[in-house]
Amino acid sequence: MPSLLPLLTLDALRVRYGPLEALHGVSLTIEPGEVTAVVGRNGAGKSTLLRSVAGYLRPSSGRIVWQGSDITRASIGRRAAAGVLLIPDEGGVFRSLTVRENLELFAGHRAADLKLAFETFPALKELTSRRAALLSGGEQQMLALSRALLAPWRLLLVDELSQGLASALAGRLYAVLAELAAAHPDRSVVLAEPHPRAALAAVSQVHVLRRGELAASGSPADFDAATL
């Protein structure tokens, strides 16, 4: 039985970069067990939304509520401890560390579980002693996504997973995500996507951002994938 409280509530969230405001008061809720897509063009505010939920950015006004408690001013570490995990669109890996060191960091104290990552992404197995800076874009994205396999989370925020990747690899990564979401029905996933067609099949809720405002929300059936 789902709890009465939503997992995450954004209340009139405003975020600004210096003189520019990127989000003009966005309010939405994310329920436990949902897979949500946040779609919109470049510059619509998808990354800003995700980054402020994870604590990388400080909102200028509005509230972020996590299971009933206000986390608007909480640090990245506190949110991560509560279960918020962001996989950013770039820089999701420690570039100066090796693949194995990256995985060990992601796994925290349960360092024995690395084989989970190697089973899902066999390509990483041959690269364990290579520095992450020397990986290709796809390999880096696999390594970044391994974090979702190794670290504990309750809300996974994935920023433009498919950016700059071959469609076969992007499909593989989405399949991994879908498996993850299916394996843990109590957890929630938020995908930020400029081209939602590939992702739309897997999601249960869609939010459309346009110029920093929430333009529409609904189930995927409400939207024609071709027009998004």
């Binding site: 994870a54 604590g55 990388y56 640090s75 990245i76 570490g77 991560a80 995990l85 962001l86 950013p88 820089g91 999701g92 890996v93 420690f94 570039r95 100066s96 560390l97 060191e101 060990e104 960091l105 992601f106 925290g108 670290a151």
Partner: peptide, 24 residues
């Protein structure tokens, strides 16, 4: 050592490290 690994992670990318280690 593991502490050394954590320190190197914090030096590399503090925001990213903050999610999994006590970076501050």
């Amino acid at each position: 050592t593991r502490v050394g690994l954590l320190v190197r992670a914090v030096v590399d990318d503090r925001d990213l490290a903050a999610a999994s280690v006590p970076a501050d």
